[in-house]
Design a protein around this nucleic acid. Structure first.
Lengths: 348, 348
DNA sequence: TTGAAAGCGCTAACAA
DNA sequence: TTGTTAGCGCTTTCAA
């Protein structure tokens, strides 16, 4: 047996173990895969020898033959965002439980990188793909290759309507509505909306929610109170300068993410404004920062990890052709978490 | 040509296009791969027909034949941490540039999950593996399978000494030293160290740096001033209670990460303590939170994205057998960013 | 319960 | 410059 152990550089294949046992490779294959039609003792012998020879299943070769890879691709705009990393954590965890690998890619908010990512995933023959769209993405042309070959595709968070693809989202319209309504309830009379790219469903819907809430409460919509930008910290600070020039200065801000909401709070504080008395602010995402900034940020909570889990579960079901009851959109719950950044004394 | 286009469910292979062109599959293969020994016009014809037939390279089959996958694995303790997502962003970006895919996994701080992750990666025949160890990991037994087959392995951040593996780290000892020294320079007389798992090089070294700084400045080391825990927000708050019981109350805290440093600040503020006058605090990692908490947190900055880029570049070089000048450890720069949480009036 | 043989789609040595 | 042929390591029909 000693000589067997020594084969260290060459891969041990099922043929090697077949030779040792004087049986056929197919029997070995079956033995290793716990095929019912193999005698228990041969199975045992096979597994024994496989062990001794340090045999390791070559998923790879197996996949070629079986015509699937048991790996899924995930493409996101940016990996280094709190929300996205949460989603991916959920995806990985569940994928792992279900016996799938996950291949990862980022579009860096560019359609070009998005397309090339899709091609790479396709060439790697992923069994399915999960994607959150870049802000630049305005159509689904670059996905054609997947549709053509019938590779399941699921959108999450930043999605695009397509009859054959399910989308996993939250109700951004409702969330935007609730955030704005809350501000109104707190007595705000002039509410700014700080929004993101209007190519992205999430920001479009949050904006719509904002408008609807105003309308429902007999407040005029004013174009000057809406600012679209990259929603990062720097932009938030700039926005404060702009707002300060308005007369009267707005008394409420609904920002479409936490980073910019936090920036707005910090900015106003620098100018001696009181939050929430002078300006009440609401963010979106419930990132860790929201409980660190002072006053703590009112925000929309939004289950990233769960979104990832739902997305991958749905995808794998689809890959396995199970459970695809023609569902088209899965909407996850969200909630408004009220914290001091918006909680004014109830007086009006 | 119409009939060609229609082959939509079956994969188009190089054989299909060979048949159409009445040439051999190998010529097609070469033509597609831009082999020098193929006539320009045949090459053109091949690519033309490939296009028309919607041919897509099957990386997969190619890999089986070539005995490599051009994919690398990355295993981290947790995906949903700011630092890790930064590192992974760097890895993905560079890997992509260099033509590699990245397969992702998380150990969830468990050796068991770590081993199974390694096995999965191995079975997927990754060309190399990047890993940041779980806190539970006390030896490298579960990596044997990689060593045996000579699969390159590189550690980053949370590492383990091994003669054949390069590690990408920062100088945690020095950083810990500097953080503590800074506190001493600010006049702190009784400095608490809030550390993490002592199985992890990063926390061990930060702790050592703390001790050395005390020693070098004639300050007694006191076991009661050292607290090890999970370093999350909740633990940080608990620590505050503990510290408040001490007499006198400590006047400085060096926390081994930002989350717990921020928690400490918030905790002390709740009890009416002044930061930094009563207690000065320093964190580690320079996460976004550090510039939001009030007062802003002094912390060690530490290039996550770059760490990822260096790690993957080194790994790929190793895979290609280039540039492996027996290097064993790569140390990235770090720096202490001084902010108000520790900046006391220079008086002493 | 097992074996023979074909083949997944591609590449590469060798020959022409 | 191109073709022939033999695999990469595994699975799976079909036959025994």
């Amino acid at each position: 047996m000693q000589s067997i152990e020594m084969k260290t550089n060459k891969e041990t294949t099922i043929y090697d173990i077949a030779r040792v046992l004087n049986i056929s490779a197919s029997t070995v294959s079956r033995g290793l895969n716990d095929h019912p039609a193999i005698r228990k003792d041969t199975k045992k012998k096979i597994q024994q020898v496989a062990m001794e020879m340090g045999y390791q299943h070559n998923t790879f070769a197996s996949n070629l033959r079986r015509k699937h890879t048991r790996t899924v691709g995930v493409i996101v705009p940016k990996l280094d965002s709190y929300f996205m990393s949460t989603v991916i954590a959920g995806i990985e965890k569940k994928a792992n439980d279900l016996g799938y690998n996950v291949l990862i890619g980022q579009s860096q908010e560019s359609v070009l990188k998005e397309s090339s990512g899709i091609l790479t995933m396709f060439n790697s023959r992923v069994d399915g793909l999960l994607i959150s769209l870049s802000t630049e993405t305005k159509n689904l042309d670059h996905f054609k290759i997947l549709f053509k070959k019938g590779i399941p595709l699921i959108f999450f968070d930043r999605v695009f309507e397509h009859p054959d693809c399910v989308s996993i989202v939250i109700d951004n319209f409702k969330a935007g509505y609730e955030a704005t309504k809350h501000l109104i309830d707190q007595g705000c009379k002039k509410i700014v909306h700080l929004g993101g790219s209007q190519y992205s469903n999430v920001y479009v819907d949050r904006f719509k929610g904002y408008k609807k809430a105003l309308a429902d409460n007999n407040m005029d919509f004013d174009d000057d109170l809406v600012i679209f930008n990259k929603l990062d910290y720097k932009c938030g600070i700039e926005v404060v300068r702009q707002m300060l020039k308005l007369d009267p200065v707005p008394d409420g801000v609904f920002a479409a993410n936490d980073a910019s909401a936090v920036a707005v709070i910090c900015g106003f504080k620098q100018f001696g404004k009181q939050i929430p008395q002078d300006i009440a602010v609401v963010g979106f995402n419930n990132t860790p920062m929201s409980t660190v900034v002072e006053p703590n940020l009112t925000t929309i909570n939004y289950p990233g990890e769960e979104m990832g889990e739902v997305a991958i579960t749905t995808l794998i079901n689809q890959i396995k052709n199970v459970n695809s009851h023609n569902l088209n959109t899965i909407v996850l719950r969200h909630d408004l978490i009220i914290r001091p950044s918006s909680a004014r004394n109830k007086s009006g």
